[in-house]
Design a protein around this nucleic acid. Sequence first.
DNA 1: GCTGCTGTAAAACATTTGTTTTAAATAAGT
DNA 2: ACTTATTTAAAACAAATGTTTTACAGCAGC
Lengths: 226, 226
Amino acid sequence: MAITKNSEETKRKIISAANALFAEKGFEAVSLREITALAGANVAAVNYHFGNKEQLIDEVIVQHVLPVIEERMRLLKDSKKSSNGKPISIESILNAFIRPFLTVMNNSGQSKALFCKLSGRCMSDRGGDLPARAVKEFVAMLKEFTHTLQETIPQLPAKVLLWRLHFSFGVVAHTLMYEERFHEITNGGCGTPNLETTLQRMIDFCQGGLLAQDSPVDKMKGEVDA
Amino acid sequence: MAITKNSEETKRKIISAANALFAEKGFEAVSLREITALAGANVAAVNYHFGNKEQLIDEVIVQHVLPVIEERMRLLKDSKKSSNGKPISIESILNAFIRPFLTVMNNSGQSKALFCKLSGRCMSDRGGDLPARAVKEFVAMLKEFTHTLQETIPQLPAKVLLWRLHFSFGVVAHTLMYEERFHEITNGGCGTPNLETTLQRMIDFCQGGLLAQDSPVDKMKGEVDA
DNA sequence: GCTGCTGTAAAACATTTGTTTTAAATAAGT
DNA sequence: ACTTATTTAAAACAAATGTTTTACAGCAGC
């Protein structure tokens, strides 16, 4: 009944070490030897348990990203349930979109700073490519949020809405990744807000952005868009 | 009078090759041999002309980032001049902030896609660190824009404004870097807008975000901010 | 024509990388 | 207790990396 030896335990230690190192230095910049050293395992363990480095990276990303996606879907579904068929507020939608980072982070056992950095890296490094396993869920989530937003802001053209959701992604990704950097460059002028405050500020900003007036672009300049 | 041999020419070819490769694959992921091969030069040429890889990266970043910063300052100054001491519109400020990417890009001779990717990498790779030479100018620009925005939106607390400028940065960086990715993931649903359209959409979004109502955060939850 | 300087080219350098191989140790099955 | 499968450990592998060394070519000035 008991699991053979430390197999699962070793895998967990490797993933945990990889988590921390990938977050800090990026996926490509970390060597397998650094990971296994931190995990207290042998170099060959990575290839034995995960196949190769690429598959280890995929595993880390999937384990990191899926819970956030699932929590997003859960929050959105809950909001829908309690609104009795009426369109949900933008704030609720944005909350369901952004808050999961905080929720999952607090349940992850990882340091908050590392969790945030890893989140950013999942969106940034490797050209933002997600492992095949996670793409399906990610696309489904994007569709669900797009559709829900559409119902709340029906006057906004679908394409513009898609772009603004994309922009909102940028806000979150950039904020998660460069909090430290931001702190340095403003010489501390940005303060030291807790995450709840930062979350609310992102929601405020994105809400304003989503609701902004949609400037017509001069057609003479060549709008290729439909 | 003539410069000895092809010294400057070789440097230019290396920088040009590095530009393209760094944009496509990231700074760390490109080897010196790839660069010199594309440039038609010898491996040792990089160390001879630039010292080492790190200094080459710095040179590429500086040459890429400084023109954008300068153009931003120029546009902002022009706007101020033509407003006769009155606060400038947010749209003008955002235009001065974002449009320089397009202007410099069109004068760069590089492919648009590569220029955008390199811009994103300058903000993303290496933890967003800028070379020492560029930090001063960047900070000065940030201060100038913050100050100008402050005059236009005096009712917004300084810290909140700083954060919203940070968010705007995220919008631009993310959009520049992941246009392709966005196209794939929406299955083309985002359309194929030209850059002028995308620019206007970013301005609209950020303007909405900057003007958004500033939600008070529940102090009981522990606002560390001042 | 020699000397010195600048730029180029090829080769060699020591490290580090991901991965495989080989062998030993441990647990489970019968 | 013997066998088998699973997991770990150490060593070896080939390939690639940034950098340095060495040698050679072109051009200047005295």
